[in-house]
Design a binder for these strands. Structure first.
Lengths: 67, 67
DNA sequence: TACATATGTAAAACATCTTTTACAGAAAGA
DNA sequence: TCTTTCTGTAAAAGATGTTTTACATATGTA
């Protein structure tokens, strides 16, 4: 599943590590999600949406739906 | 994490099994999620939101946020 | 009663997500 | 050059999500 985390993160002037700390995960987790290695858990998706001041439905692109 | 899947499912007159088939998962998975045994994957959350004609942000209640 | 439908639950196996530890390359500044 | 910051990646271990198989209870209806 695609997402616009990198884009939103940069708009907030956050490094992967800074975002990771805010979300209480590791930098590798943020990196993997940004590069679509795997999808986050629902709980982490909610955290990221909140930190990046958006919604899950806007942050992630369900390819079967929006792509 | 809480959710209103059961409520939305019943509004659509679907059994757990019927919803499971639409979402391509097993009945046990739907049952476990409705009873908050665990959270679905992000992909499944998107599927359920679509089938139940709502959004993830409305279907699930992030207790740290909305509770 | 007998039968079908709907729901709850459990254990083992399998799949996916996350951490830990570690190494590497690119970019920017002193 | 040296150092710092940021990013990409990998393997193993641990945590969480899903399937398979199976049994149980409740409800409605022929």
């Amino acid at each position: 599943m695609e997402n616009i985390i990198r884009e939103r993160r940069k708009q907030g002037h956050l490094s992967q590590e800074a975002l990771a700390k805010k979300a209480n995960v590791t930098r590798q987790t943020i990196n993997a999600i940004e590069n679509a290695k795997y999808d986050p858990s629902l709980a982490l998706a909610f955290k990221l949406a909140k930190i990046l001041e958006t919604t899950i439905d806007q942050l992630f692109i369900d390819s079967k739906e929006n792509g």
